[in-house]
Computed example of a mutant assay.
Amino acid sequence: MKILAFDTSNKPLSVAVVVDGKVLAHLESTEKKTHSVTILPDIKKALTESNLTINDIDLIAVAKGPGSYTGVRIAVTVAKTLADTLHKNLVGVSSLELLAADGDKAHILVPLMDARNDNAFAGVYQNSRDKFVSIIGDHHTSMEKLFEALKEYDENQLEFINATPRLQELIQNQFPNAKIITVEDSLPDAAKLAKLAESKKPVTDIDDFIPTYLRLTQAEHDWYAKGHKDDGNVSYVEEV
């Protein structure tokens, strides 16, 4: 299977082409350019390095969030456009599960994305037969509530991934024996994204595939603050 995988949900941009488990091209970009400027040239470059065209690709894999609102939207929009226009299969993978792939498979893995004010996007995963099983679903939470939920686990088995200096400080105060992988050492990896995508079912309706934000955007927050109601039928985006 020929897989094109990419992730723009975090600060780095990662693109990979993987064919039958072999990585043919792998690009990581930390340039101070917006992902919207670099993603298509990087995809083209990855395909060129692989001696493939976009038409050769069987599956498009994308990190669907949570993460940077703008970053997640960019990757998902590109993935949907390519999959729809070229009639390719599309798989979305949790950006937190992708970060969990950087951890030790023997540990209880807690991937994080700093959401400021001692809050985070977090999930809890365990590896079982080379597949990541979600123990606690991805969610937006205060670190205090996350720590409370983790007290039932042996802290020596806990491994926090993608911790900023502030989150690292909070973790060390609560679980001094837990392992911590910092932001600098846990960059998203599109090659790992491709591997995760292999075991997941493709999206059945590309039009209905949307990013996973896990909390309201500021625009949505302001929308509801003005008295608009969420009736469960019409989304903020559709109403606007």
Rank of each mutant, 00 (worst) to 15 (best):
N10K: 05
K11A: 14
V15H: 06
V17K: 02
A25V: 11
L40F: 08
L59R: 13
A63F: 00
G65T: 13
S68K: 01
T70L: 02
G71R: 01
R73T: 07
T77A: 13
V78K: 10
L82R: 03
K88W: 06
N89C: 15
N89Q: 14
L90W: 06
V93S: 04
E97M: 04
L98M: 13
D102L: 14
K105G: 01
A106Q: 15
I108L: 10
L109C: 02
L112H: 08
L112I: 11
N119L: 08
G123S: 15
S128F: 13
S128T: 12
S128L: 11
R129F: 15
K131R: 13
K131P: 04
V133I: 11
I135C: 00
G137C: 03
D138V: 02
T141I: 13
E144G: 03
K145T: 12
A149F: 02
D154N: 08
D154I: 06
P165D: 11
Q172C: 05
N173M: 07
T182V: 01
E184H: 09
D185T: 05
K192I: 03
V203T: 07
D205A: 12
D207G: 04
L216Q: 06
L216C: 06
L216E: 07
V234S: 00
V240W: 07
V240C: 02
